[in-house]
Each structure stands twice: as C-alpha cells, then as structure tokens.
Write a protein that binds this DNA or RNA. Structure first.
Lengths: 325, 325
DNA sequence: TAAGAGCATGGTATCGATTACATGAAATAT
DNA sequence: ATATTTCATGTAATCGATACCATGCTCTTA
C-alpha cells in the first residue's frame, strides 16, 4: 500500500492524500472519502519515505553503559515515558561498559540517524567530549555535567557533603569505599565531598579510603581490608548502595552491629537499600525524573534549534533509615 | 554529503560508489580513490534512503512491559548483545504494563517499520494473539510459549514442579503466594505446578494459596493473611523473589526463623535473593541467555523467510540457598 | 468592481540511495 | 579463431512520501 494507491482509490491526487495526513487544506468531502479508504485498507504512510523526505525521524538515540542496572533502567524508564507520550521512538545503544562502543554509537547517530541523542555517561574522556561537540544533532548529557553542553545531573558533591556532615556528628573514625576516580559523578565527586565535609568540620584526622569496583563482592573485600587495617572505624560511607550492601555482609560476618557499632550509608536509595537488614540510609536521586527532564530538554532543543544550552541540577533527598543513628 | 557528491569527487558514477559500499564489482584502482574520498569527507550513506530503497531497516523492535525490572532488563541486555554484534539497532517499546500500549507498538511495527519484533509478554489476550498472527514481520515471543509462534520460554511448570517436590520432603503445611492467573508463566503455570507436585506426592491435604501483585508490599500483606489464617505453615513458596523478600520481612516481624521454622523459596534467582538474609532458595532462569536465543532466532527467521516456527525451552537451575533446609 | 486573501486541488521535482539494463573490455573455453 | 563468461562501469528508473508551483474558485475589502 502506498499513498498513490490510496490516491487512486479515492480519486484524488497523492498531494491531497498527503495533505490529509498533514493537516493541509482538504475539503470535508474529500476528507470523508480518504478517511474511508484509509480505514478500509489499514494504510499508514511509510515512515522511511517520510524520513528521507522530511529529515525528521521522530526517533531519539539513548546511549547507556548497561541496561540491567537499577539506576540506568530507571532513567531510561523516565526518558521513555516522555518519548512515547510525544510519539517519539527510542533506540537503545547499550555499550556494556565498553568505551569504544560508546563512540561507535555516537558515530552511528551522528548524521541524522536520529533527531537527538541522550547519553548516560560515566567516564568522559577527551575523545568523548570531542565527539559530543562534533555531533550535529541535539544532545543531552544525563547523570553528569559538562560545561557548554545540555546536561541534567545530580549534584553528587552537594548531596554527599550534606550526608557526611550529618554522619560526622556521630562519628570519630571515618571510612569510605569509593569508586574509580575516572567516574566523575560516582567516583570523584562523592569522594571529594566526603573528604571536604569531614575536613571542614575538623574531623579529618581519621578518614580512610578504599577503592572498589561497583559490585557487591569487590566492596565486601574492600570493607575487609579497611577493617583489618583500622578496626576502630565507626562510620562507613559507600559510593553506592550495592557497595554498602557488600560492606554490610562483611560487617555482619565479623559480628558488627549496625547501626550500634557502625553507622553505614550508601547512595542511590535503590530497591536493595530498603531490603537490606537493617535498611540502609542513602541519598535518593529521582532517576525517573531526571530521565524525564533530560527527554523534555532534548525535545525542546529539537524544536528550538538554537536554544541556549542548559545545565539542570536535579534535587536530592537523604533517606535516613535503619543503618544510621 | 550524498553519494552523488562523492561520485563527482571521485570521478565515477553513483552506481560505482554504491557498489563500493555493497561489495559489487569495482576495480582496485577506483576502490582506492573512493576510499580516500570517503575517508576525507567522513561520508556514510543515508540509512533512510537505504531503508526506503531496500526495505531493510536493520532494526528490531522490542516490546516490554517495564524496563526497570531485573528480569526484563536482563533479557533486554541479552537481546542487545546479539543485535549490536550483528549490527542491528534496537528500538524499545516500553508499555509500562499498559496492555493498550502493547497493541499500539505492535501496530506501529506492523508494516515494515522494523525488520522484526520481539515481545516480552506477560498477559496474552485474544486480541494480542490476533495482532501477533497478523504481524507481517518476523516475530519472537519471549518468556512465554504460544503454539505456532516462535517462542523462547522458560518451563515454569517443570521448574516449579521440581522445586516443590524437593520442598515437599521437608514440609507438612504448605502455602504459596501466587501471582495473577492472567499471567500465564509467572501466575498460572507456577501455581499449577506447585499444586500438582504436592498433590502427586500425597501432600495436598494442607496447601494454601494467596494472590498478590508483584511488589514487595503486596506480598508482605498476603503473607500476613496466610499466617493469620494458618499459623502452622512450615513451607512457603512465592511466585517471585521480590514476593519472597516481602514475605520474609513479615516472617521476621512475627519472629519466625528461616529456614528453621519455615522453608522459603522464590523464583528468578535475582540479585535480591542473594542479598536477603538468609539468602533465598530460588529457581534460576538465565534471562540474558534467553534474550540472546530469542534475538538469534529472530535474526535467523529474518534471513530464512520461511523457516519453520520454533519453540525453544530454556533450561532452569535450582539454586538452593539459606532459606531451605 | 478590482484586487487581494484564503481555500482546494493537481502536477511534478525531490530526498539519497539501489539496481536493472546496456555496453564494452578482458579472460577463458571450445 | 570464435563463442562465452567474468569483470567494470555508466544511465536512468525506482522506492514512497513531501512540498513547491501553478491554477481556479470563492469571499472580503477598499
């Protein structure tokens, strides 16, 4: 079925049928006829021909590090909500934490494959920044901030600073299981904030750091290293909830009581932090919301070609739960 | 940049440039020239023009009930792996558990928007089946079985039957927190299997069922109802791990010891079942793998138009953990 | 009443590729 | 030496829409 077959059946020109679909001038009379034919045949215009002609794909590319992660999938859920509502399609670029894949997708989307791109970034190399600048479609960076680029981000520094200040009130010997410095938001910012807060509150004498990958087991081992070296730690902050749960497992195994012996906190306020026993105090970032905001920002800058770049900070909230006093 | 500009720059016809990209006959000499021009300009052919002309999109539509769910996102991860490897794009249709959205996406993908469709189904109404039959692109149903349709599924019945048989050995009073019957796999099959196994082992005297939604809280309440009515339950099986964790919370709150007082089991072997305390015995379905298999099956039936429909059963494994004796 | 605005419609060029067809040269077979 | 393949290339039709241009009609409005 093509538009010209419909035109023939309806006894009008292809132009008129096209106008029918694009709210152009069509008399009520012809509208009736076309509507009938369209319904009878179940016709709908070929999106590919439309794309070729109009240069509009109504499709957004979303590049992510890993779909089966709670934070990422929640962001994607938020993005998706806005996109389907606005009748955009979402094509997924899951890089499985492979930086080169990220660049590949960026290249793939570069020349008008899609109307816009959202990147949920973690590690941003110089190459990435270059590619992003070169991108000739509207772009939003989600989860991280980059100057001169549309960004929707969580202020990790501010949030962790606030949490650390609270923890400082009840602690003497501090530790943190941190993530790689290469990860700006989850790694570097959170570590810096923790340190700065404690230092500025005069608690910097005893603060110990260990670095671990994002998974439970790595955190568990890191926790073990920490407590072997410093058995008197009374406050442990972890860069993510998963890490906090890993740490919790080790703490249980060495007979520590939470929060009596040790106050523990994580980041993300994810499902798992509510399931752990005790529940884990955590920083809540509304990931669905930031996904939505990112999508809205993107659609806006698709409509308004030369809108100024925005950097939108999404508010955090601290959920005090069972693991802190 | 278009193919004809490249052709002009290289001093050849558009046909030759096209052949260069599609391994047609091109002399080594011209290949060199074209390669140079392409590299200099960074040209790549417009996918939309290609789609229009070739009727191939190299894109797969994946319809899912909810992206931020562990089982779904793991399946999508598996699908994605195969697809990116084979240079296919994945467009996501997240229905947010809205049946009508599911039909909308099915319609949207119907006429060659995509080369194929994978549906991660839960509830399959007659309407769904109709739409699926009418679909004129290759199709795979994932997570559920449907006769005469490519399906990749987990044999919930068989797996639960096996687990129930094991539980039966150590139990006297049985209960299950089940999911809605409308959900074939997670609801109906698991419930039936549990019942059948117990009956056939002569343990059907005391078996109690409660139904709940998939979330933690609903399961918690269902559990509460169960134990109020039947305080002597010693074996509790839940339709999902999340439900099992909800139940576990209630059991803790009424002072039951797991697995001493009650043996508990769930389905999914998801992250949370390893984090709970005690860890929860569960049925492991390799969701990434089934995603991969589904994607492979789909790509195969794209290549081989009239391959016979396959129904592929994915093996399960029971992970016995801390919550059972 | 003439000029301009708004409505309705058709013809056709165009978007950027692929590919059927035509043509000729070189290599191989008979 | 002639007939066939195989290789290399160009011309132009085509995929299925959109949109510019032209045309004619019916109203306003000065």
């Amino acid at each position: 079925m093509t538009i010209s077959e419909i035109a023939k059946l309806a006894g009008v020109s292809t132009a008129t049928v096209s106008r029918y679909f694009n709210q152009g001038y069509v008399s009520e009379e012809k509208k009736q006829i076309i509507r009938r034919i369209v319904e009878e045949t179940g016709f709908s215009p070929s999106p590919h021909a439309q794309m070729l002609r109009t240069k509009q794909t109504r499709t957004i590319g979303v590049i992510i590090p890993k779909i089966n992660s709670e934070t990422v999938s929640r962001m994607v859920a938020g993005i998706n909500r806005v996109l389907t509502q606005e009748k955009y399609l979402l094509v997924l670029g899951d890089t499985e934490n492979d930086e080169r894949e990220e660049l590949k997708f960026l290249d793939l989307f570069r020349n008008k494959q899609v109307d816009g791109v959202i990147l949920i970034g973690t590690v941003l190399s110089a190459k990435h920044k270059q590619r992003i600048k070169n991108l000739d479609v509207p772009f939003v960076l989600l989860g991280q901030r980059m100057l001169g680029v549309n960004s929707v981000y969580h202020d990790n520094y501010e949030a962790v600073y606030a949490l650390a200040s609270k923890l400082a009130q009840n602690g003497k010997v501090f530790a943190m299981i941190a993530a790689t410095e290469a990860d700006q938001a989850a790694g570097s910012d959170r570590r810096r904030a923790y340190w700065d807060a404690l230092r500025e509150l005069g608690k910097s004498e005893k603060v110990f750091f260990e670095e671990a990958r994002f998974d439970l087991h790595a955190a568990r081992e890191a926790c073990s290293r920490l407590f072997e070296a410093h058995p008197d730690i009374d406050t442990l902050f972890c860069a993510t909830d998963n890490m906090a749960v890993g740490a919790l497992q080790h703490l249980h195994s060495i007979g520590k009581t939470i929060p009596h012996d040790i106050q523990l906190a994580g980041v993300g306020d994810t499902f798992i932090s509510d399931v752990a026993n005790p529940t884990i105090t955590s920083i809540a970032f509304p990931y669905e919301e930031s996904g939505q905001v990112a999508a809205e920002l993107l659609l806006q800058s698709i409509v308004d070609e030369n809108a100024s770049k925005k950097e939108i900070k999404i508010a955090y909230k601290i959920s005090y739960k069972g693991s802190t006093r």
